[in-house]
């Protein structure tokens, strides 16, 4: 049997796109080689160009283009919407089905969070967009809706923590099931980037703990506005003391 050629994956993306980050996270977790095509969203408005609109008439990012061959000849797929891209990547490249399990109940639960991420976090996304570009808007109505969405995640995680506490001490609480899924990857970027919009996450302690669990997953990648878990990032750094700092500094009064 001849070896199938590796798939060619091209991700049209903007480095500050929260939705693009969701896809980058999964590509990182799956260790999938891919090409990044940067799109000059701001200030160039390249996503409104004819060439880009031919790829995605909505002008939204990210867009995934892939060429692959499953044995029946070369195929090509073009996908928009992070949630659709996450679904396809998980079904196509995660044979163990860790990220999108087979169980109908888990799949439906995941679909619920994918819709939630795109619909209920839209006001937060809009607030972030205005804050990043310095567009003056009255933040109050957006902030209220964003906080409602964050509270929904907080309450859900909190309930699951309480339920899990009895069983295993509260570790390993995820949005759906008992392991991380693409539901995490859709919800994590807008929630963890809320600071960009000027919304602090202090009122959401269970969300905080969940963010730390996501950051600790092997293959996790950061984006601007999201820092690694510093406790583990610094643990690997050797403390270097330069020769000069070995001796106490001369007193300016001596």
């Amino acid at each position: 049997m001849t070896r199938r050629p590796d798939p060619v994956i091209r991700l049209h993306d903007y480095v500050l796109s929260s939705e693009g980050y969701a896809v980058r996270l999964l590509l990182g977790f799956l260790g999938l080689a891919h090409q990044r095509v940067p799109v000059d969203v701001h200030p160039g408005r390249e996503n409104r160009s004819e060439a880009f609109l031919a790829l995605n008439p909505l002008g939204t990012l990210p867009v995934l283009e892939a060429g692959f061959d499953e044995g029946s000849g070369p195929q090509r797929i073009v996908l928009r919407e992070a949630e659709a891209i996450l679904t396809w990547l998980a079904l196509r490249f995660d044979p163990a089905r860790n990220w999108l399990p087979e169980s109908p109940e888990l799949q439906a639960g995941i679909a619920q969070w994918l819709f939630f991420a795109s619909r209920d976090f839209a006001p937060l996304a809009r607030l972030r967009d205005c804050a990043l570009r310095g567009i003056p808007v009255d933040p109050a109505p957006f902030a209220r809706q964003a906080q409602q969405a964050l509270s929904v995640v907080e309450d859900h995680l909190c309930e699951r923590e309480i339920a899990a506490e009895a069983a295993d001490g509260g570790e390993g609480v995820w949005l759906v099931g008992s392991a991380p899924t693409i539901a995490e990857l859709a919800v994590f970027p807008p929630a963890a980037l809320a600071w960009d919009a000027g919304l602090g996450l202090e009122p959401y302690p269970a969300l905080w703990r969940w963010i730390r669990r996501v950051k600790a997953l092997p293959g996790f990648t950061v984006m601007p506005g999201i820092y690694p878990d510093f406790a583990s990032a610094y643990a690997a750094v050797p403390i270097v003391t330069s020769a000069a700092s070995g001796a106490p500094p001369a007193s300016p009064h001596s």
Binding site: V15, L16, H42, L132, W195, D196, P224, G225, Y227
Partner: peptide, 9 residues
Amino acid sequence: HEIFMQDRM
């Protein structure tokens, strides 16, 4: 943009 957004945070 990547560098500046790290500063912005």
